[in-house]
């Protein structure tokens, strides 16, 4: 079945990220001036305001910072409720948002903040693979 949920449209600012995703890599922007990773991608470092940003391949490892269980959603996601959304602290620093996999949305008390997660990618169309995180 075709992917029926919102698909991000890559733009020049984050082209490298989406190219990496297609190849199963989690590419992250890092400032070459202060060496800190930031998320989401920008043309200026939000920490030190340098404009020299490089892309590095991340480990694809993170930890659950907080989560919620969505019982109401729209479009393609409406068919998936309940599902778990989570903010993920990246091993490299800063945070991503995701729909969490490998958890039981009917038992939120079984989901642990701080649990280790790994990234995986789902091919949404020819151009875009969307990252999701799974509890390991």
């Amino acid at each position: 079945m075709a992917y029926n949920k919102p698909i991000p449209e890559p733009d020049p600012l984050n082209k490298v990220f989406w190219e990496g995703a297609k190849a199963g890599k989690l590419m992250l922007p890092r400032c070459t001036s202060c060496n800190r990773v930031h998320w989401y991608p920008r043309i200026i470092c939000p920490h030190c305001h340098a404009r020299e940003i490089e892309w590095i391949e991340g480990s694809g490892v993170g930890y659950i910072h907080t989560f919620a269980v969505q019982h109401r959603a729209f479009g393609g996601w409406a068919e998936e409720v309940p599902f778990v959304t989570a903010y993920i602290d990246l091993q490299e620093g800063d945070r991503m948002f995701t729909v969490l996999r490998g958890v039981d949305p009917t038992k939120p008390e079984s989901i642990q903040i701080g649990a280790k997660v790994k990234v995986e990618f789902e091919q949404a169309n020819d151009d875009v693979a969307i990252p999701f995180w799974r509890v390991v």
Binding site: K5, P6, I7, P8, E9, D11, N14, W39, Y40, A68, Q70, R72, A73, F74, W77, E80, F83, T85, M96, F97, T98, V99, I130
Partner: peptide, 13 residues
């Protein structure tokens, strides 16, 4: 771009 694909729908979510 990195939050809307994941099914959140407004403030409560």
């Amino acid at each position: 771009l990195f939050s809307n694909p994941y099914g959140v729908s407004g403030a409560p979510s």
